[in-house]
Design a protein around this nucleic acid. Structure first.
Lengths: 352, 352
DNA sequence: CTGAAAGCGCTAACAC
DNA sequence: GTGTTAGCGCTTTCAG
């Protein structure tokens, strides 16, 4: 194997422009103390030679690595990929993150970390040592993992926590779950629904509680009863089946149901079909997340979109801003989620 | 900003183990010329101190970067992400690639490159200079882009080409499209079908022709006619509608149709429904790719799975092997695709 | 405002 | 087998 070296280095540029390495470095990093004329001359050489700095070398010399690292839960992510249920969480993260990184000349890395393991710290140490990212983005449930957040804080690596409000350091960002749940519930009330069921998600994710809180508060605002209308699932299709069955077996059956994710909504639809309950004529259905399956379902599901791309994009932006010492906005950052009306919601059936 | 340095470096390990840097380096890289006893001592220090080498430094010193770079088409990928049609191509690439990389202590990077641009070379130069990957994986349609393949060859960067058989250098890997199309056609013949329509994909992708060739050859083997039974689409849902309409308007209507991707198959299903043609009773339908939508469709679609994860996994494996100077298998590498039978295929209807 | 020198963490090449 | 030396490409001091 030949010792592969950089084709064109800062030296070549310096020689070509007739200046010192240092001046070229200053131009690359948009630093002050360079005359405009010099800057122009150096930039011309850079363009002509097609020079691009090696991030390895930049990192080595102790400055930035121009790398933003996204950390996802290993087991869950792999399981989701293997199951091929069509969730595009990772894709949306990449969409939002990579584009924003590119805008600022950064690269986004995507890595999996094992939470089970007792050696989360070891694994993190290794990843950070190897990659030396300028910022880290944590996704649920890592965002609330005290081992991880404490470790990152101790290492003084800037990090963002998606889907977390807690005071665990770093930059927390949430996706307007509570407001969106409230909006969805209100919309159903507008449509004349009075008994609106709610299928909650696993307590392991804090957003489960936020979603539920939104529903509760909108119900309270409308002076509607909550009795027996909330059932807990765990985000799986199976748990959705059980939850839907229990809701639809109620004496005073709900005329609308909000499910805390698409899989449980799909399960609810299937239970309704099995019971001969028509959607949306007899039962309105709203789901959370708005993964691609919502549009392929029959009828297409009205859903609350989870603005993953935008949230990750914001996270990248804030991480870069923070690394430059710029001021941060009020935390947590809230990225609003929108209700997308499709075919699974309609006016409440006439009381019978 | 504090000058962030490695917490524990090779020096610390060397000091701790009482050996030279070089010996530690040899242990890290599993190189020969180290006594077992030494190796053990050094490894113990590594473990105790929680040492992990900096890939930046490793790359700097002229050896490997332990980075494999995957290049996808920028516009198409972003468009697919935005459209949220549920294609999990990227996810499957990551699944196959990241896990295999991890096995060998490599990291996988995912980047987008702009093909439109006349400055593909500039963009590639910059990416390679910045990242210095040990290997590059090209996906369609990049795999057949002569600008890209020629550039990579001139730079002597090892690369793999997914979905390409051509002699453009690097390691070509294909996903058994022709064989799979043949198998699918045969299966329909077994089920008694004699008029089997085929909706081809865009010529821009070579796999379109391979799929078509498989169908043709199986039809020929069964001495079945091809007249008017092949229509070309462009992989879009809309093109699928047109193609399906023209096939189903034939005087001697096909009793089975193979669509070159899932979107066109979905379109075919919709046209059939609109015409009152029952699936699978009156029309059998097979699609290519097996993206998640196939399982959510009604009926679930019989499909030919595209083994993306496995193919990318193989690509990583071969790239790493090649970088070690190991011998490569016969090229192109063919990763077989399997037919997955679901609810859209059945026996041919009785001749009427 | 610009340049020279030192060093980041690691490995290639060579000596022992 | 093992250690020593000299860089890799860049940025950080610190002089001028």
């Amino acid at each position: 194997m030949p010792r592969r070296r950089q084709a064109v280095t800062i030296k070549h540029v310096a020689a070509d422009a007739g200046v010192s390495l240092q001046t070229v470095s200053r131009v690359i990093n948009a630093e002050p103390n360079v005359r405009e004329e010099m800057r122009g001359r150096v930039q011309a050489s850079i363009d002509r030679l097609g020079y691009s700095p090696s991030i390895a070398a930049q990192r080595m010399s102790g400055s930035r690595s121009y790398l933003i690292l996204t950390l996802n839960d290993r087991d869950r992510t792999i399981e989701a990929w293997r199951a091929r249920q069509g969730s595009d969480w990772v894709d949306q993260m990449l969409l939002g993150g990579m584009l924003k990184c590119a805008e600022h000349g950064y690269r986004m890395l995507f890595e999996l970390v094992d939470t089970h393991d007792d050696h989360v710290e070891r694994e993190l140490t290794a990843t950070l040592a190897a990659l030396q990212p300028d910022g880290v983005i944590l996704t649920p449930p890592h965002s609330d993992n005290p081992k991880i957040t404490a470790f990152l804080q101790s290492r003084r690596v800037p990090f963002a926590r998606i889907g977390s409000k807690g005071k665990a350091g770093g930059i927390p960002l949430v996706m307007g779950d509570e407001d969106a749940a409230r909006d969805a519930t209100r919309r159903l009330v507008e449509l004349g629904h009075e008994r609106i069921g709610f299928i909650a998600g696993s307590k392991e994710y804090s957003l489960s509680e936020w979603r539920k809180a939104g529903w509760r508060s909108a119900m309270a605002d409308a002076s509607l009863p909550l009795d027996g209308l909330c059932v807990r699932g765990d985000f799986s299709y199976e748990s959705g089946l059980a939850a839907a069955r229990s809701l639809l077996a109620l004496e005073r059956r709900p005329t609308a149901i909000i499910a805390s994710n698409d899989q449980m909504a799909l399960a609810t639809r299937d239970v309704a079909e099995e019971m001969g309950i028509a959607i949306p004529e007899t039962l309105s259905l709203i789901s959370f997340d708005n993964t691609p399956v919502t549009t392929f379902a029959n009828p297409p599901l009205t859903a609350i979109d989870q603005p993953i791309a935008e949230t990750v994009s914001r996270a990248v932006e804030l991480l870069i801003a923070a690394s430059r010492g710029e001021e941060l906005p009020h935390l947590p950052v809230i990225v609003p989620a929108k209700l997308i009306e499709r075919g699974s919601t309609g006016p409440a059936p006439l009381a019978g």
